[in-house]
Amino acid sequence: MERLPSWLRQHLAALRAVVVLTALLGLIYPLVTTGIAQALFNGNANGSIVQSGGKDVGSAIIGQSFTDKDGNPVAKYFQSRPSAAGDGYDPTSTSASNLGPEDIVDTLPVPGAKDEQGNPDQGRQSLLTQVCARSKAIGELEGVSGARPYCTPDGVGAVLKVFPDHAVSVNQACPATPFTATYQGLKVECGKPGEDYATGRTIPVKGNAETPAVPADAVTASGSGLDPHISIAYADLQAPRVARERGLPTDQVKALIGEHTTGRALGFMGEPAVNVLELNLALDGARTK
Rank of each mutant, 00 (worst) to 15 (best):
Q117Y: 06
M1I: 01
L15R: 13
V162R: 02
S48Y: 05
V168S: 04
L256Q: 09
E142S: 09
R9Q: 14
L25P: 07
N208F: 05
A221M: 04
Q64L: 03
Y77C: 04
S169K: 00
T199S: 15
L266Y: 12
L40C: 06
E116M: 05
T34S: 13
L141G: 02
Q38A: 12
S83T: 13
S80F: 02
R134P: 01
A235C: 09
P249R: 08
T34I: 07
R241I: 00
A265S: 13
A113N: 11
E2Y: 13
A39W: 09
E271L: 05
D217A: 06
K55M: 15
Q184G: 07
A113H: 08
E195A: 15
D227K: 06
N275D: 10
R3F: 09
A85H: 07
A39M: 12
G146L: 08
L27I: 15
T250Q: 15
L281E: 11
K161C: 01
L141I: 12
F179P: 03
A239I: 04
N42Y: 15
P212Y: 05
R3I: 11
R246M: 08
A218W: 06
Q130M: 14
D165P: 00
Q130R: 14
F41K: 14
G43H: 14
G146P: 12
N171D: 04
V205I: 15
G143T: 10
G43L: 05
F66E: 05
A233M: 05
G200M: 01
G88L: 03
L283C: 10
K187H: 08
G53N: 14
G155M: 10
L128M: 12
D68E: 11
G63I: 02
G86A: 04
A39T: 11
R3N: 11
T94Y: 09
P149Q: 15
H166F: 07
A39N: 09
L141W: 10
S135R: 11
Q64E: 12
G139T: 03
G88C: 11
S222M: 10
T261K: 05
L127W: 09
G263T: 07
T129Q: 10
V276Q: 13
S95C: 04
Q38K: 11
K136L: 15
H229V: 00
F41E: 13
A239M: 09
V274C: 02
V253H: 10
I230V: 13
L248H: 09
L237V: 10
D284H: 02
H166C: 03
K192V: 14
R9V: 13
S231N: 07
D196T: 04
A176R: 08
T34L: 14
D121Q: 06
D196R: 05
K161D: 02
G263P: 01
N275F: 03
P193Y: 03
Q184F: 01
A17G: 13
R3C: 01
T182N: 12
I36S: 08
M1Y: 07
V110Y: 00
